[in-house]
Lab assay of single mutants.
Amino acid sequence: RLRTTILPEQLEILYRWYMQDSNPTRKMLDCISEEVGLKKRVVQVWFQNTRARERK
């Protein structure tokens, strides 16, 4: 499996959503993934990793 590259524009959108809610619902993940143009699972893992980084 290839690692997904997240573009700066996509990152900006993801962080904007993250500021609103760091733990989005499944429905929100659907909306975010549509807006960003990434698979739902990629967005979900990005949120998990970002929460983990914040805890450090």
Rank of each mutant, 00 (worst) to 15 (best):
V45F: 10
E54D: 12
F47Y: 02
Y18A: 00
K27C: 10
S33A: 13
E9H: 11
N23A: 11
M28K: 14
Q44F: 02
R51G: 04
L11P: 01
L11G: 11
V45C: 11
S22W: 04
R55N: 13
D21T: 03
R55I: 11
N23G: 04
E12R: 07
L38M: 08
E35H: 00
E12N: 13
Q48H: 11
K27T: 12
L7Q: 13
I13V: 12
E35G: 01
S33P: 00
R55L: 10
M19G: 13
P8S: 11
Q20I: 12
Y15D: 15
S33Y: 00
L29E: 07
D30C: 06
Q10D: 06
L29D: 00
L2R: 12
E54M: 05
E34C: 03
K27F: 06
K27N: 11
S33I: 00
D21Q: 00
M28Q: 13
T50Q: 15
L7C: 14
E9M: 01
K27P: 11
I6E: 05
R55P: 10
F47N: 06
R16I: 08
W46V: 05
W46K: 03
R55S: 14
T50N: 07
L11V: 14
V36G: 04
K39S: 15
N23D: 10
G37K: 08
L29N: 00
R51F: 00
Y18N: 03
L2K: 14
S33F: 02
P24K: 02
R26A: 15
V43H: 00
D30Y: 06
C31V: 15
M19H: 14
Y15P: 04
P24S: 00
D30T: 11
V42T: 12
W46H: 00
M19V: 11
E54N: 10
R1I: 12
V43R: 03
Q10Y: 03
K27R: 09
P8Q: 08
S22T: 10
R1G: 14
Q10H: 14
D30V: 06
R41W: 11
M19C: 09
Q10M: 07
V43P: 02
L7V: 07
Q48D: 15
A52S: 11
S22F: 02
K56R: 12
E35D: 09
I6T: 07
M28N: 10
Q44G: 09
E35Y: 00
P24M: 06
L11N: 15
R41V: 10
E34M: 06
I32F: 03
